[in-house]
């Protein structure tokens, strides 16, 4: 029982980080109808911005985190939107998808060239205290991972439903033409979505890097997981992505503990295929319309 609890809780903690990346993924899907194949690199990179803040600019940790967040929002939000996505919009969906694949190579190789191929240690953000719950060891980090991602989902949902800007963003996602006619600044709303995505990716990066470390190739695994989580949970729902992320984190651990370690990575993939066949809109997705 304590073993089950242990791997279950650890899975929730890791899964909540996957969820953050997956939420950003769904946001971009809805706002720009693109599958961002560089999402994993978007999570890999902000950790390096923080490391630059610490080691090059000699900022304290908290300031480095803020620095990392701001740079991430500018580079992965604003610049990504203006330099990569916007010029490509008239070309349709495929070129943009291809461009994000190329972007993922560019970010990965760029990080390697400018910061080195070796994994880098990343400072702990939360105290290393642990507590024992019925034989299972939980760290403050685990709890905070969950708290932060739940907070993000609640906050984001409130923002989208309760604020004017949020509702404009939803309108834009659902029907840009009508939104435009109704006086919504569609371009700006899409830009907001990109900024939110960058911020979420940065958050995921800060939470995962103390354990996962900072390495140029980290995005390969993270991107794939975020992708699967988003599809499994439902591409058009924020809480779908949350559920998808948690589910994958937990199932991965349960499979490894009780079924097979060799095929631990296979279960989410099989799940993805089954869900596409059985409920293409995802577990929590709705078949029509998009939320954001």
């Amino acid at each position: 029982m304590s073993q089950f609890l242990q791997v279950f809780l650890s899975g929730l903690s890791t899964g909540s980080i996957y969820a953050l990346a997956a939420i950003g993924f769904t946001l971009l899907w809805q706002a720009a109808q693109t599958v961002n194949f560089a999402q994993g690199e978007f999570v890999m990179l902000p950790a390096f911005f923080v490391l630059i803040g610490i080691h090059w600019l000699h900022l304290p940790l908290w300031l480095s985190l803020i620095f990392g967040l701001i740079v991430a929002v500018i580079v992965l939000g604003l610049l990504f939107k203006k330099v990569v996505v916007e010029p490509m919009l008239p070309n349709g969906g495929l070129p943009l998808i291809i461009a994000t694949m190329a972007l993922s190579i560019l970010l990965k190789e760029g990080t390697k060239q400018f910061y080195g191929a070796e994994a880098q240690p990343f400072p702990n953000i939360f105290p290393q205290t642990t507590m024992t719950l019925d034989g299972a060891v939980i760290s403050v980090q685990d709890i905070m991972n969950l708290v932060v991602s739940l907070g993000v989902v609640v906050g984001l949902t409130l923002f989208l439903n309760r604020t004017r800007t949020g509702r404009c963003m939803q309108a834009t996602a659902q029907n840009p033409e009508v939104a435009e006619i109704l006086g919504v600044n569609v371009k700006r709303m899409v830009l907001y979505t990109f900024l939110v995505n960058a911020a979420l990716a940065a958050l995921a990066s800060f939470l995962i890097s103390p354990i996962y470390l900072a390495k140029f190739s980290n995005g390969e695994t993270l991107g794939l997981v975020a992708f699967i989580a988003a599809i499994v949970g439902g591409f058009n729902q924020i809480r779908g992505a949350l559920v998808g992320g948690l589910l994958i984190g937990v199932l991965d651990n349960l499979t490894a503990t009780y079924v097979t370690t060799e095929y631990r990575a296979a279960l989410p993939l099989v799940m993805l295929i089954v869900i596409i066949l059985w409920r293409p809109q995802g577990l929590l997705g709705t078949s029509e319309g998009r939320q954001v």
């Binding site: 899975g11 994994a119 695994t221 993270l222 651990n253 349960l254 490894a256 370690t261």
Partner: peptide
Amino acid sequence: SEQGQADFSADVSKIKNSGAQAVFVYLNEE
């Protein structure tokens, strides 16, 4: 374990519950 695996809790938990008196670890640096 997988290369690039993020969560080692299942691995450690399995070992912890196996009653092993020592662990041979053969992994890459990260």
